[in-house]
Design a protein around this nucleic acid. Structure first.
Lengths: 125, 125, 125, 125
DNA sequence: GTGGTCTAGACCACC
DNA sequence: GTGGTCTAGACCACA
């Protein structure tokens, strides 16, 4: 019935959904996104909930609005999203996780091994 | 002004704070932790919030209460915390995070550097 | 991306743009202004929005239309605009703004400097 | 019936009301402001409308929230409000107004005289 | 058609 | 008690 995770506000999930759509190219720069009401209908949500998500992305310089016309994807939106998430990740998530690892006595090698597995072998890329 | 992250319930942050204090040895097994009121004062929090965190840890068998005396760290509390969390951490959290790092194009070196910073030199401790 | 201020209706911004063009001589009396379609194209706007602005200025006796020919600047348009606005400006807007400046502790010099910048040297024009 | 100006969104008027209350000392730094629901009742507004205003001020670093406790005035809120409004004023309003004055052929002296009147004589302060 | 704002009323987690 | 979120439905200005 509900595609949304109950642990997070829906508007944040919508925000992430839009970001993902931009990142994978479903929404192109300088192109309009579906109208607020359309999205609300698609997700069976109140338009305000959608507006909430869009306003955050407008603040983040990922979307812009044209009065009476619609909502558009900013130029370089992709770059902005990635760089914002990356800096946030390096500043906050990463030290937090590594700190927890240390507290849990996770061997340094366990982590580096995990990195190697995921980042691929020497000439994987 | 506020040492707490507004995205997480404060009682969970208190719980994690106490766990961390046990893991890194600030709180020793069979020793009392600071009184509920003391903690509440230290963090400028409602005692109920502290009690909430303590009750969870009592349920987890990490703390135990002596009526009229105080709250104590269980024997083997460290082991309990670690064993409860480490395997899941290595199995789930770690790959998830490293995966996200790769998605965000975080340089492998950024991660290893962070590890060095937190884990410190080999005989740091 | 967007030359327009989102806080004001675009048609008002267009109206002010045309008035300014008349005041500073870019549009001369009894001469035609660019066609509605041209303006719409120039600003990437819906022609209706332009028409809206023009209609207001027609009502104000600043522009007049010749059917099938175009839109023209009225004789004495400049005078009309100025007389309509100047006395009110000096009587109301100016003291209001200077009052606000004082409230905000804006240095008197900041204002006089701004005046110099915009009014230019005495024989600037 | 309605103390609010219909030309502006109510939530902006509430925002300005709170800012004014901070500026004139009715709300002190590090002190809580009336609860969202109280304000809603006082103004006969929907709590969401109040929340809207408060969220903007939180973003502006003028207010901060404590979960389940209330909303508080930031340290230096006064300074922040003034400096923000001042820079905005100097950057935007001032050049706009002076520009309009020039278009309207307002004599430079009319402006400087107005400034003198409002900023006071030489040793007014 | 578009987005912006507001209401009334509800339920939630948290302190 | 606090703020956070969501709905359903309404009315507005604007393009």
């Amino acid at each position: 019935m509900n595609v949304f995770n109950n642990d997070k506000p829906i508007y944040l999930q919508i925000k992430e959904y839009i970001e993902a759509a931009i990142l994978n190219g479903d929404l192109s720069e300088n192109e309009p996104i579906p109208s607020l009401r359309q999205l609300a209908k698609d997700f069976s949500l109140n338009p305000i909930t959608i507006a909430n998500a869009i306003n955050i992305l407008e603040n983040d310089d990922v979307l812009y609005k044209k009065r009476g016309v619609g909502v558009f994807v900013q130029k370089n939106a992709k770059k902005k999203i990635v760089s914002k998430q990356r800096s946030e990740f390096i500043r906050t998530t990463l030290p937090q996780i590594i700190g927890k690892a240390k507290l849990l006595d996770v061997a340094e090698e366990s982590i580096t091994e995990c990195i190697k597995n995921i980042y691929g072998g020497k000439d994987d890329k």
